[in-house]
Structures are given as structure tokens and as C-alpha cells.
């Protein structure tokens, strides 16, 4: 109690200096972290990761982004056909393969599943293992498909054949819920056949390559400056 003057302990002095050292250390480290955060640590992103470079639609000339309307839709605009199904012709594997009767008219019908001499590129992967050509193709008139009840339908109406098993999807397609549409939301629009998107012999949708991801925020500015420095000489020459 009476030792108040002794409170200025001589040991306090080294304590103060160590506090100063600790504080300055802390300041340096946190400053470094702040700089790293603000600059965006590119080292954290592996080089093959997406989202570093900006890509535009012009980088993919193989994709037609300016969708041209099918001629059936263009013709149907404003006419009475506007509400109907504007279905493009069926997609045959090669030109001249239809009509099938050109070849098949002289051939005998062999209903037995076997290794084919012709059409060997067709791999059947559709439903049950014992699926065979004549389940859908008509044996006596090869230019038509045959429904389960014996009705013949043309290749341009193949959706009737598919709809026999895939009834819910057929209904959705008819109402405009399933499948790709192009044209006018309030008028003429294209209806694709099932076979335009699904190979009837192996209908599962094939995986495709995705277009590149968006630029990550940390690369937005740097990417822009890099592009601008590249582009600057070119524009300079033009003017």
C-alpha cells in the first residue's frame, strides 16, 4: 500500500518494447494478407481452371447463335398453318437412303435377329435387349413405320410410333413442354421430330462439351487490361 513509488517496476520497460515489436509484426503480417487479398492470389487457381479468360460467342464459330427460323415456320407466319405442327423433314442418316424400297423391294424378308450385312453402323440400345428392326420398321412396305396395332405411319409422323411407349412425353411434346421450339410464342413455331434430337436406335442424349465458364471476379479487371494492351496497337493502326 505504501509502496506506490515502486509501482514503476523496472521490468516493465522490456515488456513495452516487446509489445511494440509484436504490434509491428502483426501490422506487417496483416498488411501482407490485405495486399494479397486485394491483388487476388492467382497462385491459388490452377492454370487449367476455367474462369480466367473471357470468351465470347465469336470464339465458337461452329455454333450458330443467330438461329435461322426453319422455312416451314417462316411460311406459316400469318397463315392458317400458324397453329399447326411445323415439322421439318425427318433426319435420315445419309442422303439417298430414303426411300428404303429402292433397295428392299428386291430383298427377301428375314425376320430373324442377326448380324446385318448392311446398316452395320446402327447400334441398337433402346429398351429391351431383344429389340429388333421389324418392331418399328414395316417388313412389307419399308417406306413406312408400323404401329403396334398394324397402322402404317410415314417417317414424318414418327412421333406417333414413339408415343406408343412414351405417352407422357408425347403429350408434353404436343403441348409444347417437351422439345425444342423456334419461332413465335404467339404463333408459328417449329416442332422437331423425336428423331431430330434422339437417335431412335440409341435415344439417350449424348453428353456435350460445355462452353467456358464466366470469368471469376478476381480476373475481370486483369483480363480486361491484358486484352486492351493487346488490342491497342491494332486500333491505333486503323485510325
Amino acid at each position: 500500500m505504501s509502496e506506490r513509488p515502486d509501482k514503476t517496476d523496472p521490468q516493465l520497460l522490456p515488456g513495452w518494447s516487446s509489445l511494440v515489436i509484436l504490434l509491428s509484426l502483426f501490422a506487417v503480417i496483416s498488411g501482407g494478407v490485405m495486399v494479397a487479398i486485394l491483388r487476388g492470389e492467382e497462385a491459388h487457381v490452377t492454370p487449367d481452371t476455367g474462369g480466367v479468360h473471357a470468351h465470347g460467342p465469336a470464339d465458337f464459330p461452329e455454333i450458330e447463335f443467330d438461329v435461322q427460323l426453319p422455312s416451314a415456320v417462316v411460311e406459316a407466319v400469318g397463315s392458317e398453318q400458324a397453329g399447326g405442327f411445323n415439322v421439318p423433314p425427318p433426319p435420315f442418316s445419309e442422303d439417298g437412303i430414303f426411300p428404303c424400297s429402292d433397295c428392299h423391294v428386291d430383298l427377301d424378308v428375314d425376320p430373324e435377329p442377326r448380324e446385318l450385312m448392311m446398316h452395320e453402323q446402327i447400334q441398337i440400345n433402346h429398351g429391351p435387349k431383344d429389340r429388333w428392326c421389324l418392331d418399328c420398321h414395316n417388313a412389307d412396305d419399308r417406306d413406312h413405320l408400323r404401329l403396334a396395332n398394324g397402322t402404317l405411319v410415314g417417317f414424318d409422323e414418327s412421333y406417333k410410333l414413339c408415343g406408343q411407349c412414351h405417352g407422357t412425353i408425347f403429350r408434353d411434346w404436343r403441348e409444347g413442354i417437351h422439345g425444342r421450339r423456334q419461332g413465335y410464342w404467339n404463333g408459328a413455331k417449329s416442332y422437331l421430330l423425336c428423331a431430330h434430337c434422339h437417335d431412335p436406335h440409341a435415344p439417350a442424349f449424348k453428353p456435350i462439351k460445355p462452353l467456358p465458364p464466366p470469368v471469376r471476379p478476381r480476373f475481370l479487371a486483369s483480363g480486361a487490361s491484358a486484352e486492351q494492351t493487346d488490342a491497342a496497337p491494332a486500333t491505333g493502326q486503323e485510325h
Binding site: F65, I208, K209, P210, L211, P212
Partner: peptide, 19 residues
Amino acid sequence: CRRCVYACVNENNQSRDPQ
């Protein structure tokens, strides 16, 4: 597949870079 993302950019004149 992101076809829609790029078709949108193609249609609506968004800035290509900064993206």
C-alpha cells in the same frame, strides 16, 4: 452446356471484355 449464356451475349450486345 451454357449455350444459352453465349446466345444471350450474342443477342443482347453485352460487353465482351470486361465480360
